[in-house]
Simulated scan of single mutants.
Amino acid sequence: MAAMARYFPNVLSAFHMEAEACRAGLLLAIYQEWDEFILESDCSLMVAALNQNLEDRSEVGRIIDDCKSYLTSLHSIKISHVFREANGVANRLAHLASSKFLNDVWLEEAPVIIQDVLYEDFCNCTRGQGSTSPSMHSF
C-alpha cells in the first residue's frame, strides 16, 4: 500500500487533477514493481476514460493516453469507481497537497495524518458504500 500527496500547480479542472493523480499513482506502481494493483477513483469520468479503447480528445487526453500505456506495464490491474464516502484518504491528501502543506510519498505504512480517515474509509467500504481490497495495493 502507498499514499502520495503532491502539489500540481498548473491543473485546469478537477478532471485534470484526477488524471494527474492517476498518472502519478501508476508510475509509482510501476517503479515499485507491484504485480497487483487496484486503481480506485470517485470520478466516474476517469474510470470510464481508462476503460475505453477510444482516443480521448479532452483537455487531458494525453495524460489519459499515458495512463493507458502505463496500465499495460502492470500484470494485474483493477480499475473501479468508489463513492466519495469511501475516498476520504484521497480527499485529505489532495487538500493538504493543494495547500502546499504536503509533498511526499509513503510506502507500506500509512502516515499518522491519514490514519483516522483510512479507518473511516474502511468502515464505509464494509457498509457497501465503496469497494476496496486490502489484499492488493491501492490508491
Results as ranks from 00 to 15, higher is better:
Leu74Gln: 05
Thr126Leu: 15
Ser80Asp: 14
Ser133Arg: 08
Arg23Lys: 14
Ser41His: 04
Leu54Gly: 01
Arg23Phe: 09
Glu109Ser: 03
Ile79Gly: 06
Leu28Arg: 02
Leu118Ile: 06
Lys100Gln: 12
Glu33Gly: 10
Glu55Gly: 04
His95Pro: 03
Ser99Phe: 08
Glu59Lys: 15
Leu71Gln: 05
Ile64Pro: 00
Arg57Thr: 15
His95Thr: 12
Arg127Trp: 06
Val60Ala: 11
Asn103Thr: 12
Leu96Met: 00
Ile114Lys: 02
Ser131Trp: 08
Arg127Val: 00
Tyr31Val: 10
Ala48Val: 11
Trp106Ala: 02
Ile64Thr: 05
Ala86Val: 07
Leu102Arg: 03
Cys125Lys: 06
Asn53Tyr: 10
Leu26Tyr: 01
Asp121Pro: 06
Phe122Tyr: 14
Asn103Val: 07
Tyr119Leu: 04
Glu59Trp: 07
Arg23Trp: 08
Val11Asn: 09
Gln115Asn: 07
Ile30Gln: 05
Phe83Ser: 11
Thr132Glu: 13
Arg57Asn: 12
Pro9Ser: 09
Leu39Trp: 00
Glu33Leu: 15
Asp56Tyr: 06
Leu93Lys: 05
Pro134Ile: 00
Met46Val: 13
Glu85His: 09
His75Gly: 04
Phe101Arg: 06
Asp56Gln: 13
Val105Leu: 00
Gln129Asn: 15
Leu102Pro: 04
Gly61Val: 03
Val112Cys: 00
Asp104His: 05
Leu12Cys: 12
Thr126Trp: 14
Ser58Asn: 09
Ile64Tyr: 06
Lys78Met: 14
Asn10Leu: 10
Val117Glu: 15
Glu120Cys: 00
Leu96Gln: 05
Asp104Ile: 02
Met46Thr: 14
